[in-house]
């Protein structure tokens, strides 16, 4: 914060042209990036918003402005259902990655004192990404299926008499799959923040008489919040835009906004796809803005 203040003050305080020219020139370093973003990110998004108001007929699309696609989207049970499913699955996956990821991050970031070992453990978390998505999905089927490993074991042990069908091709399997894939994006930032906590701060709290749970609640958790928020942003943006996991693991039973866009584009319904795209973009923006409210990242990082 102090840094930001000084860099704002500099041009006001130092009127000398020699010191002013320097920052002006350095802005050119941003030019390629800004140009790239304008051309390939901002312009296409604006284009998408524009297209969502075009007139869609069965075989072609015309640049005559209309609200028809928007009205169809918000009066259709299918689309609103997909929106609700997206939000629901996002919330569940967010909570489950946090529940699975936080303890793991706590172990790696705080209790492993050896820096090399904690880096090695973080790399271990990334190992699932060394296999392709398709192969992992393929591997889940014999695991979760009706005659899969989990059902066989449960039946052998006599815990269930009939195979549990919801394990595969259901919302549950989509949630299991997504949690597995995105958990590491939660672990990373949290472990990073926990690793930055000075061990003597925790010892000081111990010395002042606090028990472990007190220290966790009053020191460790607040100091790791920026990591939780960054992790939550990663997971949210990726889960909200998901379509592949649900397509592969739900047998088309679970339709997310992403799946709607894929099918609409597939049948050349550009205007509908654009409406879904705009809705999804707004949703992501709102989620990220809300998460950023939780912690003042600028102050914490």
């Amino acid at each position: 914060m102090t840094m930001a203040a000084t860099s704002h003050d500099t041009p006001v305080e130092t009127a000398a042209p020699s010191t002013r020219r320097q920052p002006d020139r350095t802005y050119w370093l941003l030019a390629p990036g800004v140009l790239w973003m304008l051309l390939f990110l901002v312009a296409p998004i604006l284009m998408m918003v524009y297209v969502s108001f075009w007139t869609q007929t069965t075989f072609k699309i015309e640049p005559t402005l209309t609200l028809k696609s928007w009205i169809t989207f918000f009066s259709s049970d299918t689309y609103l259902g997909a929106l609700w499913t997206t939000v629901r699955i996002w919330l569940i996956v967010l909570v489950s990655t946090l529940l699975v990821g936080y303890p793991a991050a706590l172990f790696v970031g705080l209790f492993v004192k050896n820096k090399t070992l904690s880096t090695a453990l973080l790399v271990l978390c990334v190992i699932p990404f060394w296999t392709s998505f398709l192969i992992r999905v393929l591997a889940w089927r014999p695991m979760l299926g009706k005659e899969g490993a989990i059902n066989m074991i449960l039946m052998k042990l006599g815990i269930v008499t009939q195979p549990i069908e919801v394990l595969l091709f259901s919302e549950l399997s989509v949630i299991i799959g997504m949690t597995q894939i995105y958990c590491v994006f939660m672990v990373g930032p949290i472990a990073f923040m926990l690793g930055r906590i000075d061990p003597s701060v925790i010892e000081a709290a111990q010395d002042l008489g606090a028990s472990f749970w007190r220290i966790f609640r009053t020191i460790i958790l607040p100091l790791s919040m920026p990591g939780v928020v960054v992790g939550a942003i990663f997971v949210s943006v990726m889960v909200l835009g998901e379509f592949a996991t649900s397509a592969a693991l739900s047998g088309r039973k679970v339709n997310l906004l992403g799946n709607i866009i894929v099918t609409q584009v597939g049948s050349l319904k550009w205007a509908f796809a654009a409406v879904a795209g705009v809705v999804l973009t707004i949703l992501m923006g709102a989620v990220v803005a809300a998460l950023l409210r939780v912690v003042d990242l600028r102050k914490e990082l």
């Binding site: 701060v201 010892e203 010395d207 002042l208």
Partner: peptide, 15 residues
Amino acid sequence: HERGIGFVFQNFALF
């Protein structure tokens, strides 16, 4: 935390 001995750290270790 049960010893009743205070410790002031070299780097202060403030929260």
